[in-house]
Amino acid sequence: MTTYIIRRLIQAVIILLIVTILVFFVMRLLPGDPIIIYVAQTAQLEAMPPEMIDKLRAQFGLDKPIVIQYFNWMGNIFRGDFGESIFYHEDVSKLMLERFPVTLHLGITALIVGSVLGLLSGLLAAIRRGKWLDKIITPLTYIGITIPIFMLAILLIYTIGLRLSWLPIAGYTSPFEDFWLSTRQIIMPVICLAVFSLAANARQMRSSMLEVIAQDYIRTAWAKGLSERVVVVKHALKNSLIPVITLIGLGVGLIFSGSFIIETIFAIPGVGRLMVSSIFGQDYVVVQAITFVIAVIVLVVNLIVDISYGWLDPRIRYG
């Protein structure tokens, strides 16, 4: 087990290296010059002579050969320095510290909601197969996996936010500042972020549960006269979790993708919105740093997922 984890960690480092190379060079393929964009966006009404532009370029180290720039960047990351944003003129670490907690707050909540509710509704649909509960859950999962999330966001804003006035329309407040307001504000964004995973998890859970229920050992358990709860929870549930866990691992990436859209709509100052504006503003340093951190998160989650297979199904050996 330990050797397996060590091997996986080495792999993760290799993957991370490739990620940095990819994002670094892809960003530099973008047509256009971040310095020009910055100057044009901030200084429309002011003339800026070319010497000043060159000076700015040197300030951000963009005048050096591209390979040198890469190694400088990597070197700085090891020192915990993610560089300075061209647009914000601010340390990227500071920007990320402002933004990541917000996205993680939403993301983790969405992940939990998506997993727990997904598993629960899938489970219910499976053990009540063909009954009315199944007939409500299954069609809802169809909507969940097909609706574009920005449409869902808009529908929620208009119905729940505007017409029914149940929840605030947009904005974000830290839960440490005002927990109740914060919770009310994140309900709609969390629904949007979670809806796809929730539906996918429920579908997966339902079908793998149905399959497990049909297995011999479950029939044996029934035959032994064990109660429904014991059979379901102790025997069936654990074994049907494996494919669902895989989905949850993939869900992390989906949540980051979703946050790009959802944070824009609900005016949430998270990392997704920062990412989108930085991609358009070609703020290399910010895009690189965020991608790096997201990659680390995705890798760690996947590692945990893979390790948890072993716990869920002892038949899996780590060779």
Binding site: Q11, I15, L16, I18, M27, S257, I279, Q282, I294, A295
Partner: peptide, 28 residues
């Protein structure tokens, strides 16, 4: 195998939308 599959894993670390966004920005 290491090179190819780790590169694929690296691509998977980019959320799909991010990758598409960056590429579309590169290509117009």
């Amino acid at each position: 195998n290491t090179i190819i599959m780790r590169t694929m894993d690296a691509l998977l670390c980019f959320p799909m939308l991010l990758l598409a966004l960056v590429l579309a920005a590169v290509l117009g």
